[in-house]
């Protein structure tokens, strides 16, 4: 029971990370119609910038603004130089161009910082563990990530549903042409949305630093899962990204934690482990295929 609860929290923490990335991606996808494979690179840049700043200054909290600013700035430059030319192109060109961006960013990071992974120091405030229920001490930093994720979700909900910008965003993900026809400066909106997405990706990257290693390729590891979240949740829907992100995080973590053990009862050890890991890696993709077969547009697709 305690193990189950611990894994549930781990899943929640992973799900929140997925949500932070997927929220930006689903907006970019839904409003601008751009498949941005380089979203993982923004996540990586946030992680590197924040971690470096934290290491130089010795303060975790100074890393946060640096990560956010670095990711957002990179995002704005990428949008202005590359993405802006891709709006009118088909998905193929977008995939190819952003794939080129991934190569470029990954190799630049290797050139600048080498292949060695970096680790961030935990902030002092959250370096200990909290006893969630009696008998289960849980790292407070992970609880902090969960809290931040939930706060961001709440903030996004308020922005999307209560502000004028949010109204335009919602309108944009439902019918792009109509918004443009009504005289909205769609270009500014696009830039804002892309910057916001980059900001969230940078935040996720920096927060992930102490839990995972900060290294080249960290973006691509999580990128595919993020795309799965976006597609399951429905392109353009923040609510979908939230529901799908949390559920996938929990399901993925649970499968990884418990499936090998279950299989070991019917097979012998190493083979059960290998198969368990394989099947749990397949889990989220299987889920996506099933969801798409039942609801081809995803769970909460906008404009359908």
């Amino acid at each position: 029971m305690i193990l189950f609860l611990e894994q549930l929290l781990n899943g929640l923490q992973y799900g929140v990370m997925l949500f932070l990335l997927a929220a930006g991606l689903t907006l970019i996808f839904g409003i601008m119609g751009v498949i941005n494979l380089a979203h993982g690179s923004l996540y990586m840049i946030g992680a590197y910038a924040g971690t470096l700043a934290a290491m130089q200054t010795g303060s975790f909290w100074l890393g946060v603004p640096v990560a956010l600013i670095a990711a957002a700035l990179t995002g704005l430059v990428v949008e202005a130089v590359v993405i802006r030319r891709l709006y009118a192109r088909d998905h193929l060109d977008q995939v190819l161009a952003t794939f080129g961006l991934i190569l470029f960013f990954n190799q630049s990071i290797i050139l600048l910082f080498g292949r060695q992974p970096m680790f961030t120091q935990l902030p002092e405030l959250f370096s200990g563990a909290v006893e969630v229920i009696p008998g289960l001490p849980y790292p407070s930093y992970r609880l902090f990530i969960i809290a931040v994720g939930l706060l961001v979700a709440l903030g996004l909900y308020l922005i999307i549903n209560r502000t004028r910008i949010g109204m335009l965003v919602r309108a944009g993900s439902t019918n792009r042409e109509m918004v443009r026809a009504l005289g909205v400066d769609i270009r500014l909106l696009y830039t804002l949305v892309f910057g916001l997405g980059a900001l969230l990706a940078g935040l996720a990257g920096f927060l992930a630093g102490p839990v995972l290693a900060v290294q080249v390729g960290m973006g691509e590891q999580i990128l595919l899962s993020t795309f799965v979240v976006v597609v399951i949740g429905g392109v353009g829907s923040i609510k979908g990204a939230f529901v799908a992100g949390i559920s996938l995080g929990v399901i993925d973590t649970m499968l990884r934690a418990f499936l090998p053990g279950l299989l070991r009862q019917v097979m012998n050890g190493p083979e059960a482990d290998a198969l368990g890991v394989g099947i749990s890696s397949m889990g989220i993709y299987l889920l996506m295929a099933l969801v798409l077969l039942v609801r081809p547009k995803g769970l909460f697709a906008a404009g359908s």
Binding site: H91, L224, V231, V277, G278, I279, M282, Y285, M288, A289
Partner: peptide, 20 residues
Amino acid sequence: VQFIMITLAFAQMLFFLFVS
């Protein structure tokens, strides 16, 4: 887009199947 992602999903499933 859904077609792009679902074909990717099936390929990833096979990838992990053969890894295991």
